[in-house]
Design a binder for these strands. Structure first.
Length: 565
RNA sequence: CGGGGUGUGGCGCAGCCUGGUAGCGCACCUGCCUUGGGCGCAGGGGGUCGGAGGUUCAAAUCCUCUCACCCCGACCA
């Protein structure tokens, strides 16, 4: 492609609205433009990156027997009503009515459509297993789109669905996807972890997320370098180190005005790890008291899982009515509500709220001075010990680039997607669903592979592979050589971008670094003076000076190295 | 949904506090010049200051409402 005829609108400055590196670079390099919050246009370069990623995905999906289909974006309400998600999902779903006032929605995902298709077309165990996939737009009315292309309201997803006769079949399909996904991310040049994740409302048989580490990520994951344990923060468990417990005897101490852990800690000159944070939550069965150590944070999802169902923080007036004290002064001693305590509180002696404003109780022993149900409630922090092997865990931010879920019969039962088994009996199909976000792969790749000057595309997903850059368009020798190289390299099968703009060299070099094509061939004064062109990798930037006729061979050598990496 | 912030030419910003009729850099157009890391000189085009209402002789500037976008949090099959 010739730059002069392309839409590659690079920007000299960072866009004001961008925060994340990938967001800034994807806009500056002319990959995308924002139409509205969380709604993006993919420009030619961005589209090529998506195409590359999708090609890798298709190959790996086809390799495990996936069959590509395309399902609609527009769905009738009925199938969502049958699965129960029409009401279970709130404002995140775009809903609309047609001219006859029929309810429709825009697909956030396609389990319902797959189950519907299965009811129509799957009759017998002989028709199973099946793997169906599509690369299709998803629409979700995200509460807060952010970080450029990372979290948008309209986005492309490769979603596949497996249909099996039983749980064993599902397990195989699930494993095949896990492996295919690893190959996809390996090929796309991403660093990633496969972590246990919370299946949420998706279905309860298990799920994993594929997380690409990046400071711009929205999620935290806990990792153990020693044994390989990896889990999303909402599931991850760690064992915090115990503080040295003093030889306290029970006493009530005045803590006037101290409402928070730092305040009480400072006032009493006591390590926060020796305080217990008492938090009132309201679940399905009413008010409960959740306890975590003062230096830790409650993970609401963990508490919700323990209690089963939705929870919310108690209002201050609910707290006062129940405990007779304000939020900052409540504690577990002598209260009538159920108490759930973080597992690390089983041992030790602590300071807790006295259920009396302005006072705390020192020397309180869980199990002796109050009884509680113990469970893992706290957010894993750096430095805790791995539950499996005892080594210290690290906590990293990461971008969720894919998720895989064992759905079981969650959708096939309500939508009556059944098959007849060998004995002629009707049984529900076992389903799995598996999603990948191509745009998130692109953003994660930029996050993980860039420098101060711009993007450094991995070979496999670069919008072009070779960038031919004639320095001076007024020099006939340079332009002719560049044209010839452009033709030869294209002929050799490379995807080549020729910067044939009549721009200053500085502009061209800056743009080349910005858009990050893996190999650059510079045709400049070195050609005139020494009869050579320079071939260099975007990463590394060492020039190999070769005569023009040898350039294709040198490019091939570079390409071999880059495609291996 | 709660909190914070920003809307001024295509992009990035100043001006607003203290009202007086809009400015800078980049980009763009023309000419000359220049050609290995975002040149130089000269000339030029382009803005109902997000929108509506109000105060005032006069509003980008003050007041009210509203919309959009960004950030933090909540939420996220």
């Amino acid at each position: 492609m010739r730059w002069s005829r392309s839409l590659i609108p690079t920007l000299r400055e960072d866009p004001a609205e961008a925060e994340a590196v990938s967001h800034k670079l994807m806009i500056r390099a002319g990959l995308v433009r924002q139409l509205a919050a969380g709604i993006y246009v993919y420009l030619p370069l961005g589209q090529r990156v998506l195409d590359k990623i999708n090609a890798v995905i298709r190959e790996e999906m086809n390799r495990i027997g996936g069959q590509e289909i395309t399902m609609p974006v527009l769905h009738p309400a009925e199938i969502w009503q049958q699965s129960g998600r029409w009401t279970a999902i709130g404002e995140e779903m775009f809903r609309l009515k047609d001219r006859n006032q029929r309810d429709l929605c825009l697909g956030m995902t396609h389990e319902e459509v797959v189950a519907w298709l299965a009811t129509k077309e799957i009759r017998s165990y002989r028709n199973l297993p099946q793997i169906w996939y599509q690369i299709q737009t998803k629409e979700r009315d995200e509460a807060r789109p952010r970080s450029g292309v990372m979290r948008t309201r309209e986005f492309l997803m490769k979603d596949s669905y497996t249909l099996d006769v039983d749980e064993v079949g599902l397990a195989k399909a699930y494993e095949a996807h896990r492996e295919a996904y690893c190959r996809i991310f390996d090929r796309c040049g991403l660093r990633y972890y496969v972590v246990e994740s919370d299946p949420g409302m998706m279905g309860g048989l298990g799920s994993h997320d594929f997380m690409a580490p990046s400071s711009a990520g929205e999620d935290e994951i806990a990792l153990c370098a020693t044994c390989g344990y990896a889990a999303s923060a909402e599931l991850a468990r760690g064992v915090p180190a115990s503080p040295a417990f003093p030889d306290w005897r029970p006493e009530e101490v005045p803590t006037p005005g101290a409402q928070t852990i730092p305040q009480v800690s400072a006032l009493l000159k006591v390590d926060p790890a020796l305080l217990i944070k008492s938090l009132g939550y309201v679940g399905a069965d009413g008010l409960v008291l959740a306890l975590v150590r003062g230096d830790q944070t409650l993970h609401e999802k963990k508490l919700a899982r323990v209690l089963g169902g939705e929870i919310r923080p108690a209002h201050p007036d609910e707290i006062r009515a129940q405990f007779g004290a304000s939020v900052g002064s409540i504690g577990p001693v002598g209260v009538k509500v159920p108490i759930i305590a973080d597992a690390c509180l089983r041992e030790g002696v602590y300071v807790v709220g006295a259920n009396r404003d302005g006072f705390h109780l020192k020397g309180v022993r869980p199990g002796t001075d109050f009884t509680a149900r113990f469970a893992d409630l706290h957010v894993v922090q750096l430095g805790e010990r791995c539950r499996q092997c005892g080594a210290p865990v690290t906590v990293e931010r990461a971008i969720e680039v894919a998720g895989i879920f064992k759905l079981g019969t969650r959708y096939s039962v309500p939508l009556r997607a059944v098959f007849l088994d060998e004995t002629g009996q009707a049984r529900p199909i076992w389903m799995g669903s598996y999603g990948i976000g191509p745009a998130r792969i692109a953003a994660a790749a930029v996050e993980q592979s860039h420098d101060a000057d711009g993007i450094i595309w991995p070979w496999s997903i670069a919008p072009y592979q070779v960038h031919v850059l004639p320095v001076n368009m007024k020099d006939r020798a340079q332009t002719e050589t560049a044209e010839r190289l452009y033709a030869e390299l294209s002929e050799a099968g490379f995807e080549v971008l020729l910067d044939d703009r009549d721009e200053r060299p500085g502009v061209k070099f800056k743009d080349a670094d910005l858009i990050g094509i893996p190999i650059r061939v510079t045709v400049g004064t070195a050609l005139v003076k020494d009869g050579v062109v320079e071939v260099r990798a975007r990463r590394g930037r060492e020039d190999r000076r070769v005569p023009p006729r040898d350039a294709p061979v040198t490019v091939k050598e570079h390409a071999r190295e880059l495609s291996r990496a």
